[in-house]
């Protein structure tokens, strides 16, 4: 196991809820975590549910029949929407992490420029794409598929 180096988290979970001076990106951070936990929970159940295909056709059919209800359809759509947001926001985070979307290093001359402003247009585009995917997915889930 690697050595664990941590800094004190003075705000705890409350720190997730306040955007403070960091703007909308702070709320995306919170939503990224919440959607990530939701997708993980669904994924762990998904592994067991879909493993029924390895046993028999009858078990697969009865398992799929159990989940064939409006409640599960809505739940599945929420997971789909969570994935659309998490993936597109994660793409933004990944590109920033790898050194893109932050702008070149500059001499700090007042008024200081924030690298948050460099990534913001991309963030807006990603959120528009996520919203479009969620809407088209909703059409597929609730209208075209039924």
């Amino acid at each position: 196991m690697p050595e664990i180096i941590r800094y004190p988290n003075k705000l705890g979970l409350i720190g997730w809820l306040g955007g403070g001076k960091w703007g909308v990106e702070r709320y995306l951070y919170t939503l990224h975590r919440v959607t990530g936990l939701g997708i993980l929970l669904y994924f762990l159940m998904h592994i067991f549910v879909t493993s029924s295909r390895a046993i028999s056709e009858e078990l697969w059919r009865s398992t799929m029949g159990f989940f064939d209800s409006t409640v599960f359809l809505i739940g599945e759509y929420l997971v789909f929407a969570a994935f659309a947001f998490h993936a597109l926001n994660g793409l933004r985070l990944g590109l920033i992490e790898l050194g893109f979307l932050t702008g070149p290093a500059e001499e700090p001359v007042y008024p200081y420029k924030s690298s948050l402003n460099v990534q913001r247009p991309f963030m807006i585009v990603m959120m528009i794409v996520a919203a479009a995917v969620i809407i088209v997915g909703g059409w597929d889930f609730f209208i075209a598929g039924h």
Binding site: F83, G90, L91, G94, L98, V136, D140
Partner: peptide, 23 residues
């Protein structure tokens, strides 16, 4: 981070094929 970027591709294909197939 890299696994996340790969998942966008793999899970994206899965989602498009399974949950947007009617479109």
């Amino acid at each position: 981070v890299l696994a996340g970027l790969i998942l966008i591709f793999l899970l994206g294909l899965h989602m498009l094929g399974f949950h947007m197939n009617d479109v």
